[in-house]
Amino acid sequence: MKFSLLVSTSPASSQGAMTAYQFARAAVSQGHEIYRVFFYGDGVLNANALSTVPQDEINLPRAWDELLTNHNIESVACVSSALVRGILDPEESARHKMAGVSLLESTQIAGLGQLVDASIQSERLISFA
């Protein structure tokens, strides 16, 4: 079945992001397709490549990056949510004359049209908060 995921909480402040990741892993292990993971609101912090965590904790952005890359899953950070939280790709970083890039390589910055498209194209949209 074709799934999309909507993730709207930050890995650092609530469990929802980890639940979404665990669900995504279980879905791909059953052979399902994940059409898109859409990070919205605080959820864009899942795509923060600059996040560092203590050694005995899971770095969720890094875990997402691996999962998304290995299974060729498209992921999108909502542009308005991302910019205000300092999640920038090279293009946005240059446009706003910022010092660095913070978006995971596996994720793109795009608008809410991608969430609507995911709702239309997928057989299930699963939200995690």
């Binding site: 709207s8 919205y40 609101g41 308005s80 949510s81 608008g111 809410l112 049209g113 969430l115 609507v116 498209d117 709702s119 239309i120």
Partner: peptide, 19 residues
């Protein structure tokens, strides 16, 4: 919280795409 705004923005986007 910003939740109210997030829902409005998502709803408007769906309207733009003629859902």
């Amino acid at each position: 919280s910003n939740k109210a705004k997030l829902v409005i923005d998502a709803g408007l986007a769906a309207a733009v795409f003629e859902q």
